[in-house]
Design a protein around this nucleic acid. Structure first.
Length: 569
RNA sequence: GGUCCCUUCGUCUAGUGGUCUAGGACACUGCCCUUUCACGGCGGCAACACGGGUUCGAACCCCGUAGGGAUCACCA
């Protein structure tokens, strides 16, 4: 990357617009609706993100949950700000009043905190451009709306929704793009009074150009050209004067000094109208970058929180969900059915994922450094990410790969950090008593023994038999190792005798003892060890047998063998 | 249906005209290691959507076709 050259070229572009000649020409002979306001301002060329102070934003609406796709968008925004010493702003899009914003906002902020994505301005931290809730910025929007009205870029319209709907359907049936003929547009105060006398309510619409084209220079997509005529006269204010999303968004982006609007590609079709609003208001345009959306597992459609049933048909997705449910159930997690879903970040936090692993995986959805390196520390993410290496095509969410990333990251953790993460789960399951040294030591032993069999903190549930006696017995393993070999019970009985005489019950001591037993009996270790495992853990597999026995403890081991023998006969 | 976007292994991707008999990762899979289950090591399977150009030469450039997707609200 050549920062200085990039900087030069972006300055050159700013001084001498080269791209949108068509738009300028068309603007000149447009004649009717608007005067010379419309002159697209060229955007910075690629790479320019490295050399300017960047202000980005993520604008969630308070829905109560954080979508994985949204997190990726936020991540890119956050990185862009961090790598340039710029600011990352959180703005709350709550123009659609009526819900409990505060309650629905908390889970989102918590999600950000958990992920370690801090915001420089926004809820709770404030900032110089506040307030950061759209519901509290009405005056600014009202001002913008009246300016738009005055300059003729917007008009009052008295169409009824169903009247417009009829028109739209007719256009659609004839295969034409719907173009509103503005038949209920108020040209003057007299019109307004007349319509109001008819009992009509007036909204404010954008008076979109009917010819020429809008050129969007997108950092990821390149040049996107849209005919103005294909744009609607979008409503920007309701009858009660309250603003709609596009208006509010553009006004705020400008007021906040947002330099880069980085958002999901589904916003691309919205961009022309936002460009229109911004330019009508005389704003300098931000640089746009439209990210490919995150697609569903094994598919190409946009990942949606609402299609759980469909995703559950995907093996890997179903596995993750099953794992999550098992952890939630065993650890008595109070999960909300509505948010306990692998499409939402809450899920991962609840079952003991590492935020860095999630972020690392998400960053690779649509972005790559060189096709070789895939693992990045947070510092590397900030250092190495560039928008010009973001792909254009949607990337499908792969739960198996995410889990693999999580497993690797989790196993790279130092033992004490692992223990710290796992402990809450073990405590919640009722297996470990917090503050009790013996109990905590046992947990540490189990975690050390389990090693990389623990992929996430919640995986501790697989080792319930280390802590309690009411574990499940795997029927297949029982059949194979206890029932089928005719001598298993007999051997187990003898082994129990042998073990009962042991003074020490450390892993090493037990190993010696069991191996000595095998020698005495002239059998291979393999002939007893499987039966021993099933008898003492009920499981077909697990970590080292002798570590397992040591952790369970002499008394319990003997009891369990005894019980197995009793049940078998 | 209109508008816009996209198209390399099952998935994420590398690739910017010759180094591509297309590289890496996840998944799947074979072997080795091993008392089990994992880890690990060494292998394997597997892709340039299609058709035309341009060129000595195309995954890469151009044009079409097909397919997929997003979006078309007084939601955000």
């Amino acid at each position: 990357m050549l920062p200085s050259a990039d900087f030069e070229s972006s300055k050159r572009h700013a001084a001498r617009p080269s791209l949108p000649m068509a738009a300028i020409a068309n603007g000149a002979d447009r004649g009717d609706c608007v005067d010379q306001w419309f002159r697209p301002i060229p955007l910075s060329p690629l790479h320019s993100t490295r050399c300017h102070m960047i202000r980005t934003r993520f604008a969630p609406s308070p829905t109560g949950y954080l979508h994985i796709g949204g997190v990726r968008t936020a991540l890119f925004n956050w990185i862009l700000a961090r790598q340039t010493g710029g600011q990352f702003i959180l703005r709350i899009d709550d123009t659609d009043a009526g819900r409990n914003v505060e309650a629905a906002l908390q889970p989102i902020l918590e999600g950000f905190r958990w992920l370690g994505m801090d915001w420089d301005e926004g809820p709770e931290v404030g900032g110089p451009h506040g307030p950061y809730f759209q519901s509290q910025r009405s005056e600014m929007y009202a001002d913008a709306i009246s300016r738009l009205l005055e300059s003729g870029h917007a008009y009052r319209d008295f169409a009824k929704p169903d009247e417009l709907q009829t028109l739209r359907e007719a256009a659609r049936e004839s295969g034409q793009a719907f173009v509103y003929d503005r038949r209920w547009m108020a040209n003057d105060e007299a019109d307004v009074e007349k319509y109001q006398a008819e009992g009509r309510e007036g909204v404010v619409r954008l008076k979109m150009p009917r010819d020429g084209q809008c050129v969007i220079n997108d950092l990821i997509r390149g040049e996107v050209v849209v005919e103005w005529a294909s744009e609607q006269d979008h409503v920007i204010a309701r009858a009660d004067g309250s603003p709609l999303y596009h208006l509010a968004s553009v006004v705020d982006d400008h007021a906040f000094g947002i330099t880069h609007v980085v958002r999901a590609a589904e916003h691309l079709p919205n961009t022309p109208r936002q460009v229109f609003i911004a330019q009508s208001l005389g704003y300098e345009l931000p640089t746009y970058a439209h990210l490919p959306y995150v697609a569903e597992p094994g598919g190409t459609a946009k990942l949606s929180k609402r299609k759980l049933d469909k995703y559950l048909k995907n093996r890997d997705f179903a596995n993750l969900m099953t794992r999550g449910k098992a952890i939630a159930e065993r650890c008595a997690l109070t999960t909300d059915d509505d948010t306990f879903n692998p499409v939402l970040v809450d899920f991962y936090r609840e079952i003991g994922f590492l935020p860095d692993a999630l972020l690392n995986y998400l960053m690779l959805l649509g972005w790559s450094l060189d096709g070789e390196q895939e693992k990045f520390t947070r510092e590397e993410m900030i250092k190495l990410f560039t928008l010009d290496r973001v792909n254009k095509a949607p990337a499908s969410f792969d739960p198996a790969k995410l889990t693999a990333f999580q497993a690797d990251a989790f196993n790279a953790l130092p033992q004490d950090v692992k223990v710290g993460m796992v402990k809450p789960f073990a405590v919640a399951a009722g297996w470990v008593e917090s503050g009790n040294d013996e109990s905590e030591q046992k947990l540490a032993d189990v975690i050390a023994g389990a090693g990389d069999r623990l992929k996430m903190a919640g995986d501790i549930i697989d080792f319930d038999y280390c802590f309690v006696d009411d574990y499940e017995i795997n029927p297949k393993a029982y059949q194979k190792r206890i029932v089928k070999p005719g001598n298993a019970i007999e051997l187990l009985g003898k082994l129990r005798e042998h073990l009962s005489g042991a003074d020490e019950f450390s892993a090493d001591a037990v190993e010696k003892s069991v191996k000595g037993f095998c020698e005495d009996q002239s059998i291979g270790l393999g002939e007893i060890i499987h039966a021993l495992r099933v008898a003492t853990t009920g499981a077909a597999g697990g970590f080292g047998m002798f570590e397992t026995l040591a952790v369970i403890g002499k008394e319990r081991v003997l009891q369990r063998i005894e019980k197995t023998i009793a049940n078998a006969s």
